[in-house]
Amino acid sequence: MRLFSVLALLFALSGPAFAVDPSERLADPALEARARQISEELRCLVCQNQSIDASDAQLAKDLRVIVRERITAGDSDDQVRDFLVDRYGEFVLLRPRAHGVGLLLWVLPLALLLVAGGGLFIAFRRRTASPEAERLSPEEEAALKALSREDDGRANI
């Protein structure tokens, strides 16, 4: 049973390794490493939340080939990413860039957290801010005692 579990785990972890076809690989190990690193940052447009490096979809394969062609042509990593963003839009990046709508995606969660934290702070502060305001004035205490005496007199009847 233990051997089966180990084999199943190894097979599950080796999934991304089977996605890149050996015919796609570049002969130069340094260029291939760059291509793999870029491919891990690009979203498979069919699989949505999987990198093209780990996807078996035909579109992911086509994108991997484009990445390798651009690297072989001498493009830098940023030029390869920019080429794909120009062609497919910002959605092709697994981590959106911090400008335009991407900036909103990076800043909005932090802003919401700060607003919620501020609201909770103000709510708790108001709740415990002035215990004196909840106390009765001497006149109100006297009136309350007078009313309670009246109620005591009626309860005995």
Rank of each mutant, 00 (worst) to 15 (best):
N156P: 07
A155E: 02
G74R: 03
L114T: 14
F4C: 08
I52N: 07
G102E: 11
A116Y: 13
E139L: 09
D78R: 08
A60D: 03
V107P: 13
A19L: 07
V6G: 01
Y88T: 10
L114G: 13
P16Y: 11
E40A: 02
D21N: 05
H99W: 14
A8K: 07
R149I: 07
A35Q: 01
W106K: 15
A133L: 11
N49V: 04
H99R: 08
G74H: 02
Q48A: 15
S130F: 12
D152E: 07
F11K: 01
I122K: 14
C47D: 10
L84F: 06
R127I: 04
A12E: 06
A57Q: 10
S23C: 03
T128P: 04
F11N: 08
G153T: 10
G100P: 10
R34M: 04
R125S: 12
G117H: 15
E140P: 11
L120H: 12
A155T: 01
R149E: 10
S51C: 06
P96V: 04
Q37V: 01
S148L: 11
A155Q: 02
R95N: 06
L84D: 09
R34T: 00
R64T: 03
L105V: 13
L42K: 02
L42T: 01
A129I: 09
S137H: 03
L114W: 15
V20G: 00
F121E: 15
D28C: 00
D75H: 10
N49S: 06
L136S: 08
G15K: 08
A133F: 13
E69T: 08
L147T: 04
V101D: 10
R36V: 05
F4N: 08
V115I: 15
I71C: 01
L108H: 15
N156K: 11
D56A: 13
V85H: 06
G117N: 13
R95A: 07
E150K: 10
R70G: 05
R68T: 02
L10P: 01
D86M: 15
Q37H: 05
A116M: 14
L104Q: 12
P138N: 07
A30H: 02
Q50N: 07
A143S: 11
G119Q: 12
F11Y: 10
L45M: 08
P22F: 02
L59Q: 05
Q50L: 15
I71V: 00
F91E: 15
D77F: 05
S137E: 04
E141W: 04
R87M: 15
L10H: 00
I122E: 11
V20Q: 01
K145N: 09
A27N: 06
F121S: 15
G15H: 12
A123F: 11
L120M: 12
R87H: 15
S130M: 11
L31F: 03
F91N: 14
I157E: 07
G153Q: 12
I71K: 01
L7R: 03
A17V: 00
I157C: 04
K61G: 00
L103E: 13
A35D: 02
L59S: 09
L63G: 08
P96F: 08
D53E: 10
A30L: 06
R64K: 02
E134F: 06
E150V: 11
E140S: 08
R68W: 05
A35K: 04
G117A: 15
A19T: 02
V46F: 12
E32S: 00
L93H: 01
L45K: 06
